[in-house]
Amino acid sequence: MAKIILFLNIFILTLATVACDKSGCTFTKHKEEPSDVVKQLDVLKGHSFRVMDNDGKYRYDIAICEPIPGSQTGVGVLQQEMKDGHVVPNTTHIVGLISDADIISGTDWLMLIYGSGESYHSHCMKSTGEPEQRKARIMFICDPASTDVTALLPNVVDEVNDKFEECYYLFEINTAAVCKLRPLISIGMSTGSILLIVLVCVAAFYLLAGVLYKRITLKAKGLEQIPNIDFWKDFGNLEADGCDLVCRCSKRRGPREYKGIGDEQLGEADFQSPDDGLLPM
């Protein structure tokens, strides 16, 4: 009976430990958990990555809001020094814990920060003489083509350890998980461009539907297939009349009147008819 109770206690303790480890990131610097931003990491949550630095000297294990498998409880980023493909003894350092997390987001990027790592030994000493704790910054950059989580390959960008405070390890991961949805119409399109596209589409539909109707139903041929052909023929004259009516402000001239010349304005020579010379004397 005692063995059964002991087994049950161990089992319950194991479940509690697993539940604690699977609780995810704890954002101690936020009044409330930034759930809207954290949702972008749902696809990546629980996955871990292993990557070497550019010099091949250090190996890093990175886990997203879950502890690294096989490591201590709550470890988010782990550093190990490598030599000839093997881990150098006593060179394993905890870079950051998921229990001290922070998150920052932008338009096409998101940064996950793990703090409370092991203290430096000789680098990054505070002005008080105390060593700074290690910290990891994981930069997620939008890449629509990187949809396969298992194929993601982090990049070790830099280790900033020459400051008095805020020393950190910077990692970069290109992934589609942090890409925000784009609107159907590009943001760079102006309202005028959109209206022009709509107008062209409506005109093309009007012309195509009218031609098909007149060709099939009315058996029209040639230019007579164009819808409202009589209106379009007179369209130029109608525009000219409208422009003349609206734009010309001066009073229209009436028709010229031709008045006869009075007799008093004619001279004696002009008054005589040229037929007078033909009369018999």
Rank of each mutant, 00 (worst) to 15 (best):
A2V: 15
I5G: 06
F7A: 09
L8S: 05
I10Q: 09
I12F: 10
A16M: 12
T17F: 03
D21V: 14
S23M: 13
S23L: 08
T28V: 00
K31C: 03
E32I: 05
S35K: 10
V37N: 12
K45S: 03
S48Y: 14
R59N: 01
D61L: 02
E66Q: 07
P67H: 12
P67A: 02
P67R: 11
I68T: 04
P69V: 02
S71P: 08
S71L: 05
S71G: 05
T73W: 06
G74D: 07
V75Q: 02
Q80L: 08
Q80F: 03
V88C: 00
V88Y: 03
H93E: 06
H93P: 03
I94H: 04
G96M: 03
D100N: 04
A101W: 02
A101D: 01
A101F: 04
A101T: 11
I103D: 01
S105V: 07
T107Y: 00
L110Q: 00
L110D: 00
L110C: 03
M125T: 07
S127Q: 15
P131H: 08
Q133A: 09
R134F: 07
R134C: 03
K135V: 06
I138W: 00
M139H: 02
D143G: 15
P144H: 10
P144V: 00
V149G: 01
L153F: 12
P154Q: 06
V156T: 03
V160P: 02
F164D: 13
E166S: 09
E166A: 13
C167I: 01
Y168M: 06
L170Q: 10
L170H: 10
E172F: 02
I173Q: 01
N174R: 06
V178I: 06
C179H: 07
R182M: 12
R182C: 10
I185W: 10
I187A: 06
G188A: 08
G188C: 11
G192N: 13
L195S: 10
I197R: 05
L199F: 11
F205H: 07
L207Q: 08
L208D: 09
L208R: 14
L212Q: 08
Y213R: 11
R215T: 07
I216Q: 01
K219E: 15
Q225Y: 08
I226Y: 03
P227M: 04
I229N: 00
I229Y: 05
I229G: 04
D230M: 07
W232E: 06
K233L: 13
K233T: 15
D234T: 12
G236K: 11
E239R: 11
A240V: 11
C247E: 10
C247M: 11
C247L: 11
S250R: 09
R253F: 15
I261E: 01
D263W: 14
Q265S: 09
G267T: 14
E268T: 14
A269E: 13
F271G: 09
Q272E: 11
G277S: 15
L278Q: 09
M281P: 09
